[in-house]
Write a protein that binds this DNA or RNA. Sequence first.
DNA 1: GCAAAAGTGTTTTGCGTACACCCATGC
DNA 2: GCATGGGTGTACGCAAAACACTTTTGC
Lengths: 241, 241
Amino acid sequence: MGTATKKTIQQLVSENSNYFQMAISVDCVIFGFDNNELKVLLIKSDLEEFHNEWSLLGDLVHLSENPDAASYRVLKEKTGLDDVFLEQVHTFGEVDRHPAGRVITIAYYSLIDIKHHKLKLSHNELHWHPVNEIHTMAFDHRKILSTCLEQLQSKVSEHPIVFNLLPEKFSLRELQTLYEAILGTKLDRRNFRKKFLMMNWLTDVNELEQNVTHRPGRLYRFKMRKHLQTTERKNAVAITY
Amino acid sequence: MGTATKKTIQQLVSENSNYFQMAISVDCVIFGFDNNELKVLLIKSDLEEFHNEWSLLGDLVHLSENPDAASYRVLKEKTGLDDVFLEQVHTFGEVDRHPAGRVITIAYYSLIDIKHHKLKLSHNELHWHPVNEIHTMAFDHRKILSTCLEQLQSKVSEHPIVFNLLPEKFSLRELQTLYEAILGTKLDRRNFRKKFLMMNWLTDVNELEQNVTHRPGRLYRFKMRKHLQTTERKNAVAITY
DNA sequence: GCAAAAGTGTTTTGCGTACACCCATGC
DNA sequence: GCATGGGTGTACGCAAAACACTTTTGC
């Protein structure tokens, strides 16, 4: 791939045929928010070598399949959801990362409404785990999780993507708790509320929380729930305090 | 990779052997700064199919080689430089992106001092191109270049990495012109100087520019030239105006 | 002396941040 | 009535932004 004379494709293919021996996988870090905690959807590894370890949801990319499509497929198969927030983060390709051979994996993270799937969760050994309680995982998945969490923290501070983790209607308290769970910090309630209301991203749906043991909060809906998944780059705003 | 019973590695390998038919490449977007312009190092494609198109510097990842090592190897082979700033950006894996078969490429960008290599530039059809003047490229390399440029713009606004593009000693004017070239904006000279001098990242080397047709500016050296390549994440500071 | 860029400070403004009290509801 | 969180406004400090004139050098 680096000589001076022009090659035909046939030459290129035959010269490099021994390189076409790798596999590509996608691994999805699927985040959810429940019980005031950031959680991630994991499956028991199906490899004996990692028999007691948890693993990210992933699969090999088919020979005639795009990586993005493969990650959507994995999500659809495991959660029943399509039309989700999904973003490529990093590619992990250490030579010895997979015991079965040279498998390079492209890591994605996804944000879903944890209440909204429930579907294929019971069968398979599929469970939600609090992100903070995961210490060891199969393969290099612990590192992948860390990288995706950092990416989430960084994105969330500049782009309004957290709405993908919430039900359609939510209170400001839920929204703030979610930010706090992701960022691992405490935020000032008044400043937080002020900021979000001024952003004009929320619509007051004129409903109140139900079944709470205290004064119920107002519920809001995100104005551009679907739209922002693709245009979020334009809305760079720091969420601080 | 998604059934319920445990598998041995041997089972896994044999079941999935048909997936091990892909190749991985790395492509490096090598940025340099010269003549007040941001430039990128390109090579004439060695494929007949793209005989008049420019291509990024890349190569197939060897079967027992890590992707990061492969990108360092490409850089070393083409510029003679090691110890450079190099960062993974994104992986491009569209099914039909390469005419020779399923080749998924991991894109990196690199920042080098354009004056400091010169080495292997003459042979091969290797040339520096102003980033703004590149319109078509071989494969999907135009898209890769755009993605890496966006990444550079974003990083540069928060981390002091631009020093990798400058010679050891430089004037504040050069530094500012570099920021302007990368970001495509004009910056206020007084605010820019103030900011950098207050950051305390620069050492005044007590020398003046040579061979300029006007009052010569003072030269500075970056205090942590080597160090910051690995610790730059800690220094998140917005470069604005 | 003139062109070209170096060098230098002040003022304004907006945003982030800290902070305390009353209100509505469930029990 | 009390516990729990909902809801609200103000004051301060800092950093970004806007802005103009004098100085030094080469020609």
